[in-house]
């Protein structure tokens, strides 16, 4: 294998891995932050109508 190509291949794979790992980390941290925020609101007794009352809610309302 040509040694002068190694830096190109390693940097292509390295940069891609870093970028995708950073993306995955951001997706994960964002998910955790929203779960936490929802739990805190629910701990304050603020619930969605669908969960407080009847067994199911309106699709349109839940999406908002």
């Amino acid at each position: 294998m040509q040694a002068d190509y190694f830096a190109f291949i390693a940097s292509a794979y390295g940069i891609s891995a870093l970028a995708i790992l950073a993306l995955a980390l951001w997706v994960f941290l964002d998910a955790r932050a929203q779960r936490r925020a929802l739990r805190m609101l629910e701990a304050q007794g603020i619930r969605r109508r669908s969960e407080a009352g009847g067994p199911s809610g309106h699709a349109a309302e839940a999406g908002r």
């Binding site: 995955a24 997706v27 998910a31 929203q34 779960r35 929802l38 609101l41 629910e42 999406g63």
Partner: peptide, 30 residues
């Protein structure tokens, strides 16, 4: 597959974000 997995997670987060926003407005109104 990795895209669809990340997309699914991001979509779930977005739904939660909208619930958080709706509940925050509710809390402010109360």
């Amino acid at each position: 597959l990795l895209f669809f997995a990340l997309h699914l997670t991001a979509m779930r987060t977005e739904i939660l974000r909208r619930r958080v926003a709706a509940l925050s407005r509710l809390a402010a109104r109360r």
